[in-house]
Amino acid sequence: MNDTTPSDSNRSITVEVWADLGCPWCYVGKHRLQEAIAKRPDRDRFEVRLRSFELNPGASRTPETIESAFIRSHGGDAEVVLRAERQIQAIAQSEGLPFSLDRLNANTFDFHRVVHAADAQGLGLAFYTLVQDRFFAGDLNPFDVDALAQAAEEVGFSGDRVREVLLSDEYADAVRADIAEGRRLGVQGVPFVVFDRRLAASGAQSVAGYAQALDAAAAEAPAGVA
């Protein structure tokens, strides 16, 4: 073997995560995936990359309650969505994750644009994680420009840059490209995780489920697979 060529056991593995900010299962799944990676002795091999996805592209740009958003989009009784929220809340809290039922809902396209801007500086995952975690904890309104800029500053990303992006259409094409690529890969809902472009997991898997997928991704690629 050429000494300059990394062995299969040392090669970097990309884990791509299609997700949306307000998706409860994306929040839970993200933490399960992070836990599965953290438990591995070769955890540094895995590079998690966020991909944009909009669960509700038609969502209002004016923040509204989860119940109002559900009724406007689907009709029916708000109790239906609240019952589902309480069920996910119980699961999240059993795993040590705070989960507020008083979150707001709004269009997330601009937020995804800011994540892309942060990612250009290697801060996309840190920024997304901080915002989503505080959003579900009920501690941050991601649809407030000042709150979003302050969160950016906490991970080393410029708050002024956040405002600049939001006043423009920067990274709009990048967001659309992520969504289009996800559709080509079969994404119909999120979270959707692609491991090493060789296998995928749809929906929030258990920690054990993600661990199995990481094992498979870390294994030597079968002959003929790029």
Rank of each mutant, 00 (worst) to 15 (best):
Q188C: 04
G156C: 13
P41T: 13
F70K: 00
Q150H: 10
E67T: 14
A118F: 08
E79H: 08
D144V: 11
P191R: 09
A180P: 09
L130I: 08
A226K: 09
S12M: 12
S60M: 10
I179S: 01
Q132N: 07
D133R: 06
A219N: 02
P142M: 08
D215H: 11
F135R: 01
T14E: 14
V187H: 02
A120N: 07
F157E: 06
W18A: 08
E47L: 05
V131M: 04
P142K: 11
Q34C: 00
S158F: 08
Y128R: 08
P41L: 06
S94W: 08
G224K: 11
F143H: 04
A78W: 00
R43E: 13
T62W: 01
Q121W: 07
R83H: 07
V80F: 05
G29I: 04
Y128A: 11
L21C: 08
Q150G: 02
A217Y: 02
Q87A: 13
A201P: 01
Q87T: 15
V190C: 10
W18H: 03
H112I: 10
G156Q: 12
D215N: 11
K39W: 03
E181I: 01
R134W: 03
R61K: 07
A117F: 07
R51A: 01
A221P: 00
G203T: 10
E85R: 09
I13Y: 00
A204D: 01
V145L: 08
F192W: 07
V175K: 04
I66L: 15
E181L: 13
M1F: 05
G156H: 10
P41D: 12
R163E: 13
A84E: 14
G122H: 11
S9H: 06
D144H: 11
N141T: 10
G159P: 12
V131R: 04
P57K: 12
E47S: 10
G209F: 02
F127W: 12
P222W: 07
L104V: 09
D102E: 15
Q34W: 02
F157L: 08
A19F: 03
A174T: 09
R161T: 15
E67L: 02
D196K: 01
G75V: 10
G159Y: 07
Y27V: 13
L104Y: 09
R72G: 04
V165R: 02
D146T: 07
N105F: 14
A211D: 14
T4P: 00
R11Q: 10
R161I: 07
A180I: 10
N141Q: 04
A180W: 05
G186E: 07
A147E: 13
D77R: 11
V145W: 00
A201R: 15
A152S: 11
L82K: 14
Q150D: 15
E85K: 03
S73M: 11
L125E: 12
R134C: 04
V15Y: 10
F135E: 06
W25P: 03
Q87I: 12
P222V: 06
S52R: 00
E181Y: 02
G75H: 08
L55M: 15
A226F: 14
R83N: 15
S60I: 01
V15A: 08
L167H: 14
V81Q: 12
D20W: 03
D196M: 03
F127P: 05
R197D: 13
